[in-house]
């Protein structure tokens, strides 16, 4: 092979490698990887002989399957996927706890437990609720779209951009339902 042919083969191989990585999903298990909590409050990760000082865990299905198909990605701007955790349930408790803590930090969406009051004035609705993160008040425009995850599960976005979840509209008391009927 001439050097030009070699160059050609090299370029071709580089491209083929890239294509292969596009299709592959690397499975991360408790056996083939190590997660450690750092002093800084993040997770460091060791996998396939490489150590990452910080990785970020992304939920593929935050609503329908929050603990399955977690994508572990690095902290570069492209956020390359290093692998996926199939199901968190199968993991040993201590690591499971660490990962769930990271997920809790990353995803913030208070769940509405009780609606105290909703007042409408001049195009804005002023909500006062008790959520799973504590009591809170927020303001939403009555025209802001309510995301319907299912017929009974809604997400409300307030004027700051925070999101609140009503997990099951049918389980709310009749009084509460009437209060927010106008906005749903």
């Amino acid at each position: 092979m001439t050097t030009d042919e070699q160059d050609y083969q090299q370029i071709l191989q580089e491209q083929l490698d890239k294509v292969n990585t596009m299709f592959e999903i690397k499975k991360i298990t408790s056996e083939n990887s190590t997660f450690t909590k750092t002093d800084g409050g993040f997770l460091s990760f060791k996998f396939e002989d490489k150590t990452y000082t910080r990785v970020v865990i992304y939920r593929s299905f935050p609503f329908t399957d929050p603990n399955r198909f977690l994508s572990i990605r690095d902290t570069t701007t492209q956020a390359n996927e290093l692998g996926m955790i199939d199901s968190l349930e199968e993991w040993p408790d201590d690591i499971k706890k660490m990962i769930q803590e990271q997920l809790r930090m990353r995803y913030f969406s208070p769940i509405v437990k009780e609606i105290i009051d909703v007042k409408e004035e001049y195009g804005y609705a002023y909500w006062s609720i008790i959520s799973d993160r504590g009591p809170l008040k927020f303001t939403a425009s009555i025209w802001s779209p309510i995301a319907r995850i299912s017929d009974i599960r809604f997400l409300i976005t307030d004027i700051d951009g925070n999101r609140y979840e009503i997990p099951d509209f049918s389980k709310l008391s009749h009084k509460e339902q009437k209060m927010i009927d106008l906005f749903i």
């Binding site: 750092t38 002093d39 800084g40 409050g41 993040f42 000082t53 910080r54 935050p62 902290t75 930090m105 990353r106 995803y107 913030f108 969406s109 951009g161 925070n162 999101r163």
Partner: peptide
């Protein structure tokens, strides 16, 4: 920017430390 919230991070001695959210 995290998912519908934010984190304030300081880089101390080359390491990322989360200060508050």
């Amino acid at each position: 920017a995290l998912v519908y919230n934010g984190a304030f991070i300081a880089i101390i001695n080359g390491e990322e430390k989360i200060l508050f959210q």
